[in-house]
């Protein structure tokens, strides 16, 4: 069994519990032990970097120092947590003077944490091959567009992403598992992220464009690796479809849920039942090989 670090972030403990459960389930099937970073804290998200640069830096510094103590790499499912950790690491590489004494006392090995976004970790050639060999069902009949969002890719100087305008990891994984993946140009377009409360109109406008393009290309679902994208695409779908005057009905899967489906994890339906747009009819159409 291989052990790696795991930084879940706040939403994976509640609103995105389905993502967390599917990650745990898939890791178990792939013989990967996810060791949670001990006593991790919130990354600060958009709020901290918008209002309080010092707080953003310190929240990241504490997470990095704690993450460096555990097994490596440290995989991060939330694209924004990932981006905040990498950004902080980048800043601390040249200047650690802003770190408060209480956090500097943790050892200050900020560069020691090897932070990797989960969807890149689980779409390496080795893991794709392993998932394929362990699959008990084909995802044939699933016609997904893969949606990566913003923070895992951009800016490449921080994320280290080799193809920030056209990531292909989830596309390759799902194709290997039998899905009829559809290419589209909105893979890394923004969903509006945290605007969903204060400026829902912005989220609705951006998400409507995504639905439109996905439907026009014949997709029957959207697959993502970011729980902010999942929430914005899943939670308000009926309302946005009403504004568009078009039936949408697109289940929004996490890529890990589809891995669970293909690899035959017994709890896959339990994860899927937590969604707002019911993905069960489509998921049940997947045939056991």
């Amino acid at each position: 069994m291989r052990q790696v670090g795991y930084y879940p972030g706040c939403s994976l403990t509640s609103t995105a519990i389905d993502y967390h459960e599917s990650i745990m389930g898939v890791a178990e099937l792939l013989d990967i032990e996810l060791a949670e970073v001990d006593d991790w804290n919130c990354c600060g998200a958009t709020a901290a970097h918008s209002l309080d640069h010092a707080a953003a830096l310190n929240l990241g510094a504490r997470n990095l120092a704690l993450a460096a103590r555990g097994p490596q790499p440290v995989v991060v499912p939330c694209a924004l947590c990932f981006n905040r950790l990498k950004t902080t690491q980048h800043e601390l590489a040249s200047d650690t003077s802003g770190v408060v004494a209480e956090i500097a006392a943790l050892g200050g090995d900020y560069a020691g944490a090897h932070v990797v976004e989960l969807n890149r970790f689980l779409t390496s050639e080795g893991i794709i091959a392993e998932a394929r060999s362990k699959a008990v069902a084909s995802l044939a009949g699933l016609k997904p567009v893969c949606y990566y969002g913003c923070q895992g890719q951009r800016p490449p100087k921080i994320t280290g992403h080799p193809a920030p305008e056209n990531p292909t990891g989830i596309d390759r994984l799902l194709s290997a598992l039998g899905a009829e993946v559809i290419d589209w140009p909105y893979k890394t377009d923004c969903c509006g992220a945290s605007h969903s409360l204060a400026r829902a109109d912005i989220v609705h406008h951006l998400v409507a464009r995504l639905y439109q393009e996905a439907l026009d290309r014949g997709a029957n679902c959207i697959v993502t690796g970011c729980q902010m994208c999942q929430a914005n695409l899943d939670l308000y779908q009926q309302e946005i479809a009403g504004q568009m005057g078009r039936a949408v009905n697109l289940p929004i899967f996490y890529f890990t849920e589809l891995m669970g489906l293909a690899l035959g994890h017994r709890q896959t339906e339990r994860w899927l039942a937590r969604h707002m747009v019911d993905p069960l009819p489509l998921a049940r159409s997947v045939k056991t090989a």
Partner: peptide, 22 residues
Amino acid sequence: AEEKTLVFHRAFLGEVAKRGRV
């Protein structure tokens, strides 16, 4: 100019400041 967005950020940070998590 976008008061509600500022309030949202403050509400979020208030949670972090109190508990370390949101």
